[in-house]
Design a protein around this nucleic acid. Sequence first.
DNA 1: GTTCGATTAAAACAAACGTTCGGATGGTGC
DNA 2: GCACCATCCGAACGTTTGTTTTAATCGAAC
Lengths: 216, 216
Amino acid sequence: MPPVLPPPPGPALAPDARQRLLEAATDVFAEAGYEGASVRQITDRAGTNLASVNYYFGDKEHLYIEAVKHAHECTSAAPRDFPPDTHPADKLNHFIRGMVRAMHAPTSPAAMTLMMREMADPGKAAHVVVDEFIRPMAFQLRDILRELLPDLPEPQLLMTGFSVIGQILFYRQNRPVAELIFGLDHVERLTEEMVADHVVAFTFRALGIRRKGVAS
Amino acid sequence: MPPVLPPPPGPALAPDARQRLLEAATDVFAEAGYEGASVRQITDRAGTNLASVNYYFGDKEHLYIEAVKHAHECTSAAPRDFPPDTHPADKLNHFIRGMVRAMHAPTSPAAMTLMMREMADPGKAAHVVVDEFIRPMAFQLRDILRELLPDLPEPQLLMTGFSVIGQILFYRQNRPVAELIFGLDHVERLTEEMVADHVVAFTFRALGIRRKGVAS
DNA sequence: GTTCGATTAAAACAAACGTTCGGATGGTGC
DNA sequence: GCACCATCCGAACGTTTGTTTTAATCGAAC
């Protein structure tokens, strides 16, 4: 009798089959999506038996959810906290640069792709990504903007945050399309630093912030 | 023997089985994606026989491509052309508002969703969407910005366009997530007009444009 | 009325899918 | 020695998938 449903009860810390399944699932789900990925593809890449998915995770759906959870732990893009006397403009500067870096060169590209896929088409694991990854970021940005623009009405503050995040997310969600339009070379010429500088400058001008924060 | 591969040779203008298949396919593909949608779901919704897909379109893949083509024709968001003496700031104002409207309240929601799906995960029909829908928009925006900022280097011009489009696309690509974070009520309170006003104002301030264009 | 082409309907196809079952395996405690 | 346990494997399960095949149906042209 296998350990069935409770996912990491007995064999949790082992770098063996279960772990390889999780990593293989991250890759395959990121490439092909939930429906497009087959259990056999995953077990083949993991080098395990076909039945191992059901043995360790119960079924395909639970494997997917665990893969998304594991993915969000791999993307170390947790919101940093600043020294209490940091100027809000500096906070915003660092926030933007940190998020651009996380989007541009993630620790695990497949893990980031998997999370983005779940965001674009919210499914069975959307709340995991939102609760533990997106929401903290969103609230930190909202706090920074509130500090920066104390008199702005709530809806306008919300949309201002969307304008910042929308600019940054574009380079991850729509990069392939941008490359199709303008050519691969024109787009990949845009380095992470150039993008970060641009978004900071664009946003600061839009918000009427004159001082420039330091880089990195 | 059926008319096989050339898709609309004989029965093109008829509002019959072929047309119903196209519309049903648009809906189902938009809801479930390419892999998630089954031929039987489509034929059931269209009220046709299972074999009708292969009869009219050859196979599932060609039906998908035709559905995407048909979808882009349904979304009447073609770039308008302006009177030759229009101020570039007015052009930009109208461009943003038109695109916000197209994203917010598309003529056919399913068709727009299908196109967005193909953009987020470029597949077999991406070039169709790009060539006939995205690229014209992108180039029109680029021309407007070039007119507005003649001295800006090319990469910065590109990123400026991305900042504009990124802001607008956010409300379509990430609305479900935004609703999960901030609550459905807070997000759906943002009307099409509010979003358009905000993006225009945010962008104009970022570009140092003082004059405000007229609405609609 | 008959013939012919286009269309629809029903049934069957092989392949792939997720899942399950029974037994081998290999180490650990007795 | 034996028994036990988690783990792993191979084979099969029953469905569902996309596609094909065969026959029935219909409407106009001759």
